[in-house]
């Protein structure tokens, strides 16, 4: 049985190297090896989106990526969304619109929402709901999440105007 693999990545803008067993998911590596526990495990089979991270410019469910596949890639997790102690407008909008209750889905929603607004600054409600279809929430009923995304979109547009 061969040992662990040495993996070199950039996570939240910093170089991060880690040792992974080939069978470990990127989510396990983030949480258990690197200690970034913001990404959550809901289902471990790609359905709930709680483990969403951005990898080389695309959002993915990190439970369906092997840690060893991350070699050479650039990853953003929920820990990389705020700028220092300043919350990102998406985070602020989720807080102020009460778009979370238990909060386990929230990191995934925020990473996915930021990616949406980065490439589509003014999405329709339809576009928001389809983009976020891979993120499940058992608490809020989604409506407050959609309002928060709309609010974040207008905050970000105002800020860049």
């Amino acid at each position: 049985m061969p040992g662990k693999t040495y993996v070199q990545t950039r996570i939240n803008g910093e170089p991060v190297d880690f040792l992974a067993e080939p069978r470990q998911s990127l989510l396990e590596c983030l949480r258990d090896v690197i200690g970034l526990t913001g990404s959550k495990e809901g289902c471990n089979d790609g359905n709930c989106g709680a483990c969403t991270v951005e990898m080389d410019g695309r959002i993915v469910t990190s439970c369906l990526v092997l840690g060893v596949e991350a070699e050479g890639s650039d990853i953003t997790t929920i820990e990389g969304i705020a700028e220092g102690s300043e919350l990102h407008p998406v985070q602020q909008a989720f807080l102020e619109n009460a778009a979370l209750q238990c909060g386990i889905c929230t990191p995934g929603f925020i990473v996915a929402t930021k990616a949406l607004l980065d490439h589509n600054p003014d999405p329709t409600e339809h576009e928001i709901r389809f983009w976020l279809a891979n993120n499940l929430c058992r608490c809020t009923g989604y409506d407050k999440i959609v309002r928060a995304v709309q609010d974040a979109a207008s905050r970000m547009q105002e800020a860049s105007a």
């Binding site: 790609g46 989106g49 969403t52 990898m55 695309r58 959002i59 993915v60 469910t61 369906l64 990526v65 996915a112 990616a115 949406l116 389809f130 983009w131 976020l132 279809a133 891979n134 993120n135």
Partner: peptide, 9 residues
């Protein structure tokens, strides 16, 4: 196929 995250892979 799937949602945004699944379509990424």
């Amino acid at each position: 196929i799937g949602g945004t995250q699944i379509q990424g892979r």
